[in-house]
Design a protein around this nucleic acid. Structure first.
Lengths: 334, 334
DNA sequence: ATCGCTTGATAAAAGCTTTTAGCAAAAAAT
DNA sequence: ATTTTTTGCTAAAAGCTTTTATCAAGCGAT
């Protein structure tokens, strides 16, 4: 009864088993053309029985849509990329679209290699993702015959770009502190040449008023220690709260405050940025922090890509997606 | 001169421009059949000039090799998966093979969806990856018509499986401590129902002798604190060194030791496991720890997959890849 | 002059699907 | 009873490449 069990069933097999032509089989399965309801059912039942699944390669060759896209990232570490990729996949998988993940490590040769492989495979589009907003792709993506979407990276003005709303996130943090009565708020953050650092600092300055003070440094725990050390030794009046540019910095700050005999949040409240679980949940006390909603960001980028590949219009330029605040105990929540 | 600039050049275009048949063009480009050296050069030059790149879909349809594989992971967080994926890609990209990344979040429905999409796209193989060794895939991978390789997850005996050599890694850590003169060594690790925890503990017991003592708990910083607290309050003689089952635990241990007025490494030396940069480099003092070489592990899995898709023999069963020790200051290195 | 061999090239098939154009029969309209 | 429309189905083309089988021409050997 069964022939070579290794071979995948093709539409020919379905057609033969149903006693119809290939065209009819195809029509019946796809609901196209004019097909007798009875025939349609029979074909579908048989296709199901013999386990027929259409060969996506053959289909793509004809329809010019491969139902696959490429994600190019400079990240090999994963903290940002994987949640975003998961979001992208989530948006796409229900439409049968899969994503190639290309980790370039920011190496132009590698990036070029990946890009060529993607184009050869006729991907429907490319999503570029980075570990910092103001990073240019290691390979030119502006002259491609397919749409390009930027996620957590700023592309050319004509390309749809999705980034977290850093300013809004910063305001969320500062307002939260202010609403709880903290007045003199300090901002300790990372390198000033990072766009995200500048955006957050600016938003902070707008709300913190006269006493605003920003300490730029590194994106590390160590900088958190160092900043607190400087603060204490400066002899200036102690701030009531500190808004940190990352959870790592916040962790350094909290640890250092404790070392100096200051209690969080009783003496100084602290807010972080990233909601990086392993860090935020393990500080003592656990850290109130801003979540950039990376998975949702990836999902939005995925949906935009979906529209683009269908020829639907997608707004070009930057879309800033709202951050959320995750409250834990470092600002005095019960 | 140029026709519709949007269209990708096909081999027809090459053939026409070179004044030869499609078959000759193909032969010339692939170095097959009998071709005049002169013709071959001309065809190649022209193909280069008009920017011809073969359509991988069409080629795959015929050759039955799609030059793409799927990576199925349960991780949406990335710490383990992304380094491994990067390793896989690295092994494959030079051979024109790309990898679909499917984050299943351990959800069977999602996994099934991803798997079907992969099979429809005729991937040449699948690599299954998990966040813990003893995790079974959320979807049956044993009856697939394509090879399956397991990386950081234990598959059926017939499948090539690559995992870190946890026992060897643990021995590396314990020996390092012993060589530096530390005798009474304690082991604080994660949940006992994790295979990795048991393997490491067993290797530790073999070397630590009479005084071996294992404290199983959670894979968290908090457990590190708790364990030290118990240790101190038990009033037993203090160990000279502590070998921790993860960097997070080590971090908790180090912080807690400091809180109790004990200096690392002067009073107690500490070794971690994972070499998770953000944690290990930021402990005070920086942490000596075992690196599982995840990228290399991914690379090996990728190479195995490459061989399998070429029909070359690949040893089935478990291959344990060596861990390395990264020495920092928590064991008294200058 | 005929035969056999080598060389260089080509037509056509195959891989699997979707879609267009068209055909025959049944149904409806004149 | 004849013409038109509708219905249900099919042959064939198209998408792009690789490969098999074939062909024509050139050349040395008989």
């Amino acid at each position: 009864m069964s022939e070579e069990p290794g071979r995948r069933r093709t539409i020919r097999d379905v057609a033969k088993a149903a006693g119809v032509s290939i065209a009819t089989a195809s029509n019946a399965l796809n609901g196209m053309g004019r097909t007798n309801a009875e025939t349609r059912e029979r074909v579908r039942r048989i296709a199901d029985e013999i386990g027929f699944r259409p060969n996506a390669l053959a289909r793509s060759l004809l329809t010019r849509r491969s139902h696959s896209i490429g994600i190019i990232t400079n990240d090999t570490y994963g903290r940002l990329t994987l949640p975003m990729s998961a979001g992208v996949s989530e948006a796409l998988v229900d439409h049968g679209v899969s994503a190639f993940l290309c980790a370039t490590n920011n190496d132009p040769r590698l990036a070029q290699l990946h890009l060529e492989a993607l184009l050869d495979k006729q991907v429907d589009g490319i999503i570029f993702t980075a570990t910092r907003l103001d990073l240019t792709p290691p390979v030119d993506l502006t002259r491609l015959p397919i749409p390009v979407v930027y996620a957590f990276a700023i592309g050319p003005e004509t390309a749809p770009t999705f980034i977290p709303d850093d300013a809004q996130g910063a305001r969320l943090a500062v307002r939260h502190l202010q609403e709880r009565g903290y007045r003199r708020i300090l901002h300790i953050t990372g390198q000033e040449d990072y766009l995200a650092a500048r955006l957050r600092a600016e938003a902070y300055r707008d709300l913190a008023g006269e006493q605003a003070e920003v300490m730029f440094g590194a994106w590390s725990e160590e900088w958190g220690h160092e900043a607190v050390r400087r603060l204490i030794s400066s002899g200036r009046p102690r701030p009531e709260a500190i808004f940190c540019g990352s959870d790592e910095i916040a962790r350094g700050v909290i640890d250092s405050l404790r070392d100096h005999g200051l209690k969080v949040p009783e003496d100084v409240a602290v807010v972080g940025f990233d909601n990086w679980q392993v860090v935020a949940a393990q500080t003592r006390p656990p850290l109130t922090t801003v979540d950039m909603e990376l998975k949702e960001l990836g999902r939005r980028a995925g949906l935009a890509m979906l529209d683009l590949t269908r020829g639907l219009p997608v707004a070009p330029g930057i879309t800033r997606l709202p951050c959320s605040l995750v409250t834990r105990r470092s600002c005095g929540l019960a």
